[in-house]
């Protein structure tokens, strides 16, 4: 036993202090996000003056510079909300499955959403953003259930690697299906391709307004489930002993995560690794309490995607690299690091 310092009430002090530390991190992350958002509006393949930025943001489009700035505003907002949605979705999926590798991309959920949207475009003449979103959510949900079912087969239930493998296999299969759907349709190849790499480039206000309520619902569901997720992290038996209805809680949280992943994919295409990387970084900073982890992941996810978008605009001038590619470059090494760390425990 370690030495015991019995200061009365000291644990209360400890708890208060850690709350303050977490709040500070959250505020710091928000400040960084605001800075990044300003940066995202100010820089791009076209250099603009301060005056043009001021006018462009307030809606003037008299010069090419102003117009460029004007177009960067919805793009920045889209990067923020998509990043937040994917990161929260990943945090919740990791919590629901107690699996450090869970992420809407790795579990195949974003590909499920993509296939649904692409099929909708090709066969059912899907065109409205509203239609994209609903279709994507249904596709995401069906895939999530299927991957979880496959990953749980056999001994030991849904272990992290089995689930990741099931997700990877499903993703691969869905990707070929998408090609099979798109190839014979020369007329939609371009729409699908630009959407599929994952981008926020062409953002306008209209789809943003359409997707907003979905994201709000998904976020509220996810955050609302955070105490259940905290209990389920201790194992289903402990959670049930603490009065959590485990099956219902798991379904509710997973639905929130699926709505977020589906809606984000519908407006920005599949963007990989945000949901995987961000919650891991956030756990190091604010700990494993989902009540903090979820909002903090939202802010950091927004920072990551905004940064990826800015970087993608700058490194390949005058062309642009899509955010999905930039996040994959950042995310793949992190994925490998996590696998290496968990392998010892799981195999």
């Amino acid at each position: 036993m370690s030495a015991v310092i019995s200061a009365p009430g000291s644990s209360v002090v400890v708890r208060r202090r850690s709350t303050r530390v977490r709040a500070l991190w959250l505020v710091a992350a928000i400040v960084v996000l605001v800075g990044l958002a300003c940066l995202s509006v100010a820089v791009g393949s076209r250099a603009v003056t301060w005056e043009e930025i001021g006018l462009g943001v307030t809606g003037h489009v008299d010069t090419i510079g102003q117009a460029a700035v004007y177009k960067r505003v919805p793009r920045t907002i889209l990067a923020i909300v998509v990043g937040a949605a994917l990161a929260v979705s990943g945090a919740v999926m990791q919590g629901v499955t107690r699996n450090p590798l869970a992420d809407p991309g790795i579990l195949g959920v974003t590909m499920g959403a993509s296939l649904a949207v692409v099929t909708g475009i090709a066969w059912f003449g899907l065109f409205s953003v509203q239609g994209y979103i609903w279709t994507a959510i249904v596709g995401a949900g069906v895939t999530a259930v299927a991957v979880y079912a496959v990953g749980s087969l056999g001994r030991g239930g849904a272990t992290p690697l089995k689930l990741a493998l099931a997700g990877a296999a499903t993703s691969a299969a869905l990707t070929s299906l998408i090609s099979a759907v798109v190839l014979p349709r020369g007329d939609i190849v371009e729409i699908v391709q630009s959407w599929q790499v994952g981008g926020v480039g062409g953002a306008t206000y209209e789809p943003l307004a359409t997707v907003a309520p979905f994201l709000v619902v998904g976020f509220v569901m996810s955050w609302g489930c955070s105490r259940w997720l905290n209990s389920m992290a201790l194992g289903d038996e402990v959670a049930a002993g603490l009065g959590v209805k485990v099956a219902g809680a798991r379904a509710c949280a997973a639905l929130g995560a699926v709505i977020l992943a589906g809606a984000a994919t519908a407006v920005a295409g599949p963007i990989a690794f945000v949901g995987l990387v961000v919650p891991h970084v956030c756990r190091l900073l604010v700990g494993v309490d989902h009540r903090w982890l979820i909002p903090f992941s939202a802010v950091v996810g927004a920072c990551l995607v905004t940064t990826a978008d800015v970087v993608g605009r700058l490194i390949a001038q005058p062309a642009e690299i899509q955010v999905g590619i930039v996040t994959a470059i950042v995310g793949a090494p992190v994925f490998i690091a996590i696998v290496r760390r968990t392998k010892v425990r799981e195999l």
Binding site: S11, V14, R98, P100, A233, L234, G235, G287
Partner: peptide, 10 residues
């Protein structure tokens, strides 16, 4: 019971 990695006693 399971303890998530990194959780503190408090």
């Amino acid at each position: 019971p399971l303890a998530p990695e990194g959780i503190t006693v408090a």
